[in-house]
Simulated assay, not measured.
Amino acid sequence: MNDAPDPWNDFAQELGKRLLRARATRGLSQEHVAHAAGLATFTYRKLEKGESNPGTPANPRLKTLVVLAEVLDLSLDELIPERPGGVAPGR
C-alpha cells in the first residue's frame, strides 16, 4: 500500500478554489454555473470541493473545463493550476 500523498489531490483542491473564487466574485450561484455549463449541480459542487468521489481527486474532462472557463469569463490559464510537482508529464 502506498501512503505517499497524491499530488493530484492538491491540484484538484486548487482547481476547486479557483472555481469557487471566480463564481463568488461574479455573484453567481452554484446552480447557475452548473446549468450554464450543462452540468448537474451535484457534479459542479463536487468540482468546487476538488473531488469526484469521496477520497478521489476531481478529474474533469477538457470540455467541462473549457465550458466552465467560458461561463466564468476566465482563460484556461486562470482556471487550471500548474501541473503538480512530483508528477512526471504524461502521468
Rank of each mutant, 00 (worst) to 15 (best):
M1T: 08
M1Q: 01
N2E: 12
D3F: 10
D3L: 14
D3C: 03
A4I: 09
P5A: 12
P5W: 07
D6W: 02
P7I: 01
P7L: 02
P7G: 02
W8R: 09
W8D: 01
D10F: 05
D10G: 12
F11L: 05
A12C: 08
A12P: 11
A12H: 04
E14G: 06
E14D: 14
E14A: 08
E14P: 02
L15M: 08
G16P: 11
G16E: 03
R18T: 06
R18D: 08
L19D: 10
L19P: 11
L19S: 01
L20G: 11
L20Y: 02
L20Q: 11
L20C: 09
R21T: 12
R21E: 08
R21W: 03
R21H: 07
A22K: 06
A22N: 04
A24N: 13
T25H: 14
T25P: 03
R26M: 08
R26L: 14
G27E: 08
L28S: 06
S29G: 03
Q30C: 02
Q30I: 00
Q30D: 09
Q30M: 11
E31K: 09
V33R: 07
V33I: 05
V33C: 09
A34D: 06
H35Q: 12
H35A: 15
H35V: 11
A36C: 07
A36E: 15
A37L: 05
A37V: 06
A37P: 07
G38R: 11
G38C: 13
L39S: 13
A40N: 13
A40K: 14
A40Q: 14
T41P: 03
T41E: 10
T41K: 14
F42V: 14
F42N: 15
T43S: 15
T43H: 15
R45F: 07
R45Y: 05
L47Q: 03
G50H: 07
E51L: 12
E51M: 13
S52K: 15
P54R: 14
G55W: 10
G55S: 10
T56S: 13
T56M: 14
T56L: 14
A58S: 15
N59I: 05
P60C: 11
R61S: 15
T64Q: 06
T64N: 04
T64M: 05
L65F: 01
L65K: 01
V66K: 07
V67G: 02
L68T: 05
V71F: 06
V71E: 05
L72G: 01
L72S: 02
L74D: 00
S75H: 04
L76I: 02
D77P: 01
D77C: 01
D77T: 09
D77G: 10
D77S: 04
E78L: 01
L79N: 00
L79K: 00
I80L: 14
I80A: 12
E82Y: 04
E82K: 03
R83Y: 06
P84R: 03
P84D: 10
G85S: 11
V87D: 02
V87F: 02
A88R: 12
A88M: 01
A88C: 00
P89V: 11
G90E: 01
G90V: 00
